[in-house]
Deep mutational scan, measured.
Amino acid sequence: MGKSNSKLKPEVVEELTRKTYFTEKEVQQWYKGFIKDCPSGQLDAAGFQKIYKQFFPFGDPTKFATFVFNVFDENKDGRIEFSEFIQALSVTSRGTLDEKLRWAFKLYDLDNDGYITRNEMLDIVDAIYQMVGNTVELPEEENTPEKRVDRIFAMMDKNADGKLTLQEFQEGSKADPSIVQALSLYDGLV
C-alpha cells in the first residue's frame, strides 16, 4: 500500500471509500495523518498503546488498548495497516448500531470462538476500569469489574449457560440505554 507515500493510489482510495462510511477526501485526510504518525505505514501494539495513554492519562489503558489493537489487526500480523485502521474507525465512528455491536462482540470474544464467556467479559471490564482509573464515580452495584459483569450476565445471558452469543449480546445491549450510549460516543466526531 505504498508504505511511506503521502498519497494513496486512486484505486485504493476508491476501494476504501466503498468499504467504509468515509468520502474519498476523508480517506485521504486520514491517510495523511496516519502516515505522519506512522511513517512506516504500520502501527504496532506499543504505538497503539501510546495513543491510548494520551487519551487516558489518569488510568492505565495498556490492557484495553491491547484488546482493541487485536480487533483492529484483522489479518493478525501484529501490525495495523491503514486499510485495517480506516475500516475499524469507520465501523466504530459511523457504523450502524448492529455493526458497532458486532465489532464490540469481537472485542469481548477474546478467543474468537463465537461466545463471550464470563471470564472474557471480566478481562475486558477489568481493563476498562484500569483505563479510566479513579476518574469515573461508579454506583455501588457496579464499583468492581466483578459486580459489573454479574449485572451484565444477569441481564443478557437469557439461557443461563454462562456465555453470551452474538444475538444475546446484541439484544441485551439494545435493551440497556447506557450500552447504546457508550457505543454512540464516537458518532459525529469524525
Rank of each mutant, 00 (worst) to 15 (best):
K3M: 15
S4M: 03
S4I: 05
N5G: 15
N5C: 14
N5D: 03
S6Y: 09
S6V: 00
K7G: 00
K7H: 02
K7W: 06
L8P: 01
L8Q: 03
K9W: 10
K9V: 14
K9I: 13
P10V: 14
E11T: 14
E11Y: 03
E11I: 15
V12I: 08
V12C: 14
V13Y: 06
V13P: 01
V13H: 12
E14K: 10
E14C: 05
T17Q: 14
T17P: 15
T17I: 15
T17L: 02
R18S: 06
T20P: 14
Y21A: 07
Y21K: 08
Y21I: 13
F22D: 02
T23P: 13
E24Q: 08
E24K: 12
E24V: 15
K25V: 10
E26M: 15
V27T: 03
V27R: 14
Q28V: 14
Q29K: 15
Q29D: 14
Q29V: 07
Q29A: 04
Q29T: 08
W30P: 00
W30F: 01
W30S: 00
W30E: 00
W30M: 00
Y31P: 10
G33C: 03
F34P: 04
F34N: 02
I35Q: 00
K36D: 08
K36F: 04
K36R: 10
D37Y: 08
D37K: 02
C38T: 06
C38K: 07
A45P: 04
A46N: 02
A46V: 09
A46S: 13
A46K: 03
G47S: 13
G47I: 14
G47V: 06
F48S: 13
Q49L: 06
Q49T: 00
Q49S: 03
Q49N: 03
K50E: 14
K50N: 10
I51L: 11
Y52V: 07
Y52D: 04
K53M: 13
K53S: 14
K53Q: 06
Q54P: 03
F55I: 07
F56H: 14
F58I: 01
G59A: 11
D60P: 03
D60I: 12
P61I: 01
T62F: 03
K63S: 03
K63V: 04
K63I: 14
K63W: 02
F64R: 10
F64D: 03
A65N: 02
A65K: 09
A65T: 12
T66M: 00
T66K: 08
T66V: 03
T66L: 07
V68A: 10
V68I: 08
F69T: 04
N70A: 02
N70L: 11
V71P: 11
V71A: 07
V71N: 08
F72S: 12
D73G: 06
D73V: 07
N75T: 09
N75H: 07
K76E: 10
K76A: 13
D77W: 07
D77S: 03
D77V: 06
G78S: 04
I80V: 08
E81S: 15
E81F: 02
S83P: 11
S83V: 14
E84V: 09
E84S: 05
E84G: 09
I86V: 08
I86C: 12
Q87A: 02
A88C: 12
L89N: 09
S90Q: 00
S90R: 13
R94L: 15
G95H: 15
G95W: 08
T96K: 15
D98W: 11
D98H: 10
D98Y: 11
D98C: 00
D98Q: 08
E99F: 10
E99S: 10
K100Q: 10
K100F: 15
R102H: 15
A104V: 08
F105L: 09
F105P: 02
F105H: 10
F105V: 10
K106I: 11
L107W: 10
L107R: 01
Y108V: 04
Y108H: 14
D109N: 07
L110A: 01
L110P: 08
D111R: 13
D111I: 15
N112D: 07
N112K: 10
N112W: 00
D113V: 11
D113N: 09
G114R: 02
Y115V: 10
Y115F: 13
I116G: 03
I116L: 06
I116W: 00
I116K: 11
I116R: 00
T117R: 13
T117Y: 08
T117I: 11
R118V: 03
N119A: 10
E120W: 02
L122S: 03
L122W: 03
L122Q: 12
L122A: 14
D123S: 05
I124G: 01
I124A: 01
V125M: 06
V125I: 07
D126S: 12
D126Q: 14
A127C: 02
A127K: 06
A127H: 00
A127P: 15
I128C: 13
I128Y: 15
Y129L: 01
Y129K: 14
Q130E: 15
V132F: 14
G133S: 07
G133W: 13
N134K: 04
N134V: 09
V136H: 06
V136M: 05
E137W: 07
L138W: 01
L138T: 05
P139V: 11
P139A: 06
E140R: 03
E140C: 02
E142P: 07
E142F: 09
N143R: 06
T144W: 06
P145L: 05
E146I: 15
K147P: 09
K147L: 09
R148Y: 03
R148I: 07
V149E: 05
V149N: 04
D150M: 09
R151M: 06
R151D: 07
I152Q: 12
I152G: 05
A154T: 05
M155W: 02
M156F: 14
M156I: 10
D157N: 11
D157S: 07
D157E: 08
K158Q: 12
K158M: 13
N159E: 11
N159A: 12
A160C: 05
A160F: 04
D161N: 09
D161S: 14
G162D: 12
K163V: 06
T165S: 08
L166F: 04
L166Y: 14
E168Q: 04
E168W: 11
F169R: 03
F169V: 11
F169Y: 02
E171M: 01
G172M: 07
G172F: 02
K174S: 09
K174L: 03
K174D: 07
D176C: 01
D176M: 00
D176Y: 11
P177H: 14
P177Q: 04
P177D: 10
I179G: 05
I179V: 11
V180L: 10
V180D: 10
V180G: 12
Q181C: 14
Q181M: 01
A182E: 12
L183V: 06
L183P: 09
L183E: 06
L183M: 11
S184R: 06
Y186E: 07
Y186K: 03
Y186I: 01
D187N: 04
G188E: 15
G188S: 14
